[in-house]
């Protein structure tokens, strides 16, 4: 059962974030998101405050997942890079390891080549961090979700879900 959660702690998040912000400075992109293939947002950097990053993460992951199926149909295991070009903003998605997607949103202040170059370099570094996390799990979900977590959640739900 794939029911486990790999928990990432502050330290690793900071490593991921510093790498991503370095990339953003280098390629002069607008913002970057690191998204899990399941659609969860791992972290984000740059100019994201006007974006609904939760929905964006879910949709980007969905888009990547469907592309993967397309790849499979044409005999490729997976497309590792996806690029959406718009009139003003563009999105570059690239695979990080086997579980995450690095999404870079940029406009005409930079070029696709720069973004691709920096994203590729950063992906390699990010993959290393993910491998470290995978090899050295520090703890499980049980530390965050205590015994009364579910009960307290139920109380909250009773308040929220009133017909």
């Amino acid at each position: 059962m794939a029911d486990d959660s790999l928990v990432i702690y502050e330290e690793e998040i900071q490593q991921l974030e510093s790498l991503i912000s370095k990339m953003l400075k280098g390629c002069e992109a607008k913002c970057a998101l690191l998204v899990d293939k399941d659609g969860h947002l791992i972290t984000r950097q740059g100019f994201t405050h006007s974006l609904d990053t939760t929905a964006l993460a879910a949709l980007l992951a969905g888009s990547f997942a469907s592309t993967k199926e397309i790849a499979r149909l044409v005999g490729e295991p997976e497309f590792s890079i996806l690029f959406h070009q718009g009139k003003k903003d563009n999105i570059h998605m690239s695979l990080v390891g086997d579980r995450s997607i690095l999404v870079v949103i940029f406009d005409d202040r930079t070029t696709i080549g720069m973004v691709r170059l920096y994203a590729r370099e950063t992906s390699v570094e990010l993959t290393k961090i993910f491998e470290q996390i995978k090899e050295n799990p520090k703890g499980g979900a049980s530390t965050a979700i205590s015994d009364d977590f579910a009960n307290m959640a139920q109380d909250k739900l009773d308040d929220i879900f009133q017909d």
Binding site: A2, D3, D4, S5, L6, V7, I8, E12, I13, L16, E17, D36, K37, D38, H40, L41, I42, T43, R44, Q45, T53, D98, R99, S100, I133, K134
Partner: peptide, 11 residues
């Protein structure tokens, strides 16, 4: 990916 889904947003 199952093995984990890290998430972070605060930053």
């Amino acid at each position: 990916v199952s093995a984990g889904t890290p998430v972070s947003a605060g930053t």
